[in-house]
Nucleic acid binder design. Sequence first.
DNA 1: TTAGGGTTAG
Length: 603
Amino acid sequence: MMGIATSSLHAFHKSNGSSISNSFCRLGLQFASVHSNSFSNDDHRPPSKFQKVTNLEDALNLFDEMTQRRPLPSVVKFTQLLNSVSKMKHFSSSLDLFKQMCAIGVPVSVYSMSIAIRCCCRLYRTKDGFALLGCCFRRAVVPNVFIFSTLLDGLVLEDRILEAERLFKKLIKHKLCETNVVMYNTMIKGLCKFGSNDIAIGLLRLMDERGCKPNIVTYNTIIDSLCKDRMIDDAFKIFKEMVFDKGILPNVITYNSLIYGLCLLGRGDEVSKMLKEMEDEKISPDLQTFNILVDAYCKEGKVDEAEAVIDTMVEKGVSPDIVTYNSLIDGYCLRGEMTKARKLFDSLTSKGLVPDVFTFNCLLNGYCKNLEIEEAMHMFHEIKRKGLKPDIVTYSTMLQGLYRVGRCGDACTLFDEMRAHGQLPNQCTYRIVLDGLCNNHQVEEALSLFRLVDDSKLNSDIAVYTILIDGASKCGKLDTARSLFHELTIKGLQPNVWTYCTMISGLCGEGLLTEAKHLFLKMDESGCPPNDVTYRVLLQGFLKNQHYDDVEMLLQEMDGRSYSLDASTLSLLIDQTAAGSLDRSMLKLIGRLVPKELMGAPS
DNA sequence: TTAGGGTTAG
């Protein structure tokens, strides 16, 4: 049995051969091949002080002290210290200690090896983790399910889903180690992260068939993923299966995922029901539950309710943390209440909380949206002054702010700076930059950037195309807009409602109403039915071009679909009726299309 | 020792 396993491992090792040996060299590790007899056998002694080590400095001092002792403390003691440093998330330091342990001849065990591998993985250096796996083979340390699960998790962390799947299948096929529920859960997490909820559910069924019972973590992983993907009904189906078929009781994590999913869809009534259910089940809401609620209220603009949630949590003895206040700051910013946002930000220190990059990003975004670009700039410099590192969101937010006030040159400099600081622009950054250029009459620059960046994700992003179509048509380059729209079809990309609206608006702007109407009719055929915005865009096009034939028909269709008018379209309709261009008999129909919030508002 | 939940740009 062992022989087969070892040879299979060898085959596996071979397939990763070159990268392993390279990484191994980089790690520069030397291992003790034989157990040294210079270690004490102090396992029977009461726990020594290192088990109480709570900070890195103490741990490192203790390690130094331990290396001076003769005989050397036991292997177990060294490994326990290694574990506590890695538990403190000081992965680099933990790896350094591991290297030193090897250098002074502390024998490598499967346990210390798994800690070291975990550190590599958490540092996004899974490749080095595999290098250590290679060392296991050389040192006759038989890798176990802990080591393989950790490596699998590392691949998932780095979004290397295909390699993760390959490893997972190999482990099972060749029985390289015992598989357990944690390993299945890790693979399920990877599949969910990759957006393959169906395959993840398939694996849930498969593990059950193979006699590996799914547990609460398995179900929570899938429920959470479905909730995040707005598939709340499917999430509830799985939830019911877990509770009623498997008899697994939900915990606070399960409820938090479901509450998050409901909030995402604005289904507040059901959130209250879930909270009630938790109370009945004697499951107390925790910090994260409250944070989900605070954030949901803030996003809806209901800051007062969010503040009330914070009061409740404090009453219940749950202290708000930086995440809670980040959501609240964001809520204030969204309402343009920058003074309140700033005041809260300034009070964080007195609450014993340290602002993080999220905090700064929220404030930065608030200042940018309120066109207070100097304040935003100030915040941007504060980030570095506080010893934090601006991330991709910081740069993207700042770029958007600069474009919004027309400072294209500064935006360009910042765009270069971000790349120089190792922050690679993502799809969202590109959308912001292209949109910024287009809105500042630099469509040519936007188009050249788009053509220059040969990125498959960017070049197949429907939002990017829509931004460019909009930019091109707004600056009179309708032919460019048309050819971009045509390019979509060639690439097999499906225009969405926004794309159609943009193109229709562009055509209307040039008075090309027949072409606009043709495109409008094409939407239903293409499986992308027009929404209220599309109707408004086309109506405005007709009205502005004094083309009244189809207006009544469009209004009737809107009525049939229960769509409503917005203020500007309504105003155009009323003006043209007053001018006698539209028949007054249409007023009744128009009245039906006025939403409640516009009733009584001056037109 | 390995696995699950909350915040920021669009």
